[in-house]
Design a binder for these strands. Sequence first.
DNA 1: TTGATTTGCTTAACATGTTAAATAAAATGA
DNA 2: TCATTTTATTTAACATGTTAAGCAAATCAA
Lengths: 162, 162
Amino acid sequence: MNLHIDPLIDSQPQESEDSNNLRQTRRSLPIALLRARESVMAKFRPMLARHNINEQQWRVIRILGEFGELDATQLAERALVLGPSLTRMLKTLEKSKHIAKRSDKKDARRTLLSITAKAKALIKEVSPESIQIYQDIESRFGADEMEKLLDLLEAITKDNAL
Amino acid sequence: MNLHIDPLIDSQPQESEDSNNLRQTRRSLPIALLRARESVMAKFRPMLARHNINEQQWRVIRILGEFGELDATQLAERALVLGPSLTRMLKTLEKSKHIAKRSDKKDARRTLLSITAKAKALIKEVSPESIQIYQDIESRFGADEMEKLLDLLEAITKDNAL
DNA sequence: TTGATTTGCTTAACATGTTAAATAAAATGA
DNA sequence: TCATTTTATTTAACATGTTAAGCAAATCAA
């Protein structure tokens, strides 16, 4: 999702017939989350593009780098990718030698996924740039604000899962 | 994106070789935003599905309901949809008589979009359910926390746009 | 033990996301 | 005025999102 969104700071709703009491989209949580995410990802996407990977592929590789070998279900859950998407992505990532597949000896239904040396090298390449971008965002937004935001995001996520 | 995500509260990273200093995905802002959004949308999606619309269609209709007639560029920007996606969506939404198109007399390049009576009726149907779901989320998370979260999201969005 | 159910993954079909290129109309400038 | 550039939208191609259905392996229950 690359929306190249302009600020929209001055725009105001025009309709007077607001008989439906829907919150203005500006203060709608789903839309605010999407906008915020887009504004953040806009900073990361050009860097990922330079390394010939997209957002989802980077998440999958990163999760396997962080957690080690996982089965497809756990990987999809943690990388926030749906099963059918993961199935397709794995075909690509196997061909490009970033991910290796093996079947679980104890449970033939399960596929175990792990990253290759090539993907580990990619992580080492991307990490410093990623950290730099993150720090730029954090230093402008403020480290305290960033912590507060992350805490609230974690909290509402946990809250909604109940 | 309907991920049906489980809490993942107790899971911990396994890899010791964390020589790359990437932040744990749990505290990664892009991922935290995505997770939070998924947890929120999971509450809304079944309701939208009952009304036979998806998330993006609802955003487009809602934006036109809020701002009135807009050209395609403004609509795409505000509804957080890319141009090519909007082009395709409009074909569907015109066929279903939710949206009407006319070309701008002053500038033949522009297409002006507005919602029909049918879409206004849909908004009236969906709004109370939407508001109810929103209030459920807000009452569990806390209205103060919700305000803080929305403020921080608006702030970081504005900050990143600079 | 075996028929029924559940689980893990894949396939299918259609929608949107994403980037690049194409097209047409409008604005610009010599 | 007319060639050039910019702007608004669409088309194309491929990737992921989403839901439903399918399939094989594992688990359950009688």
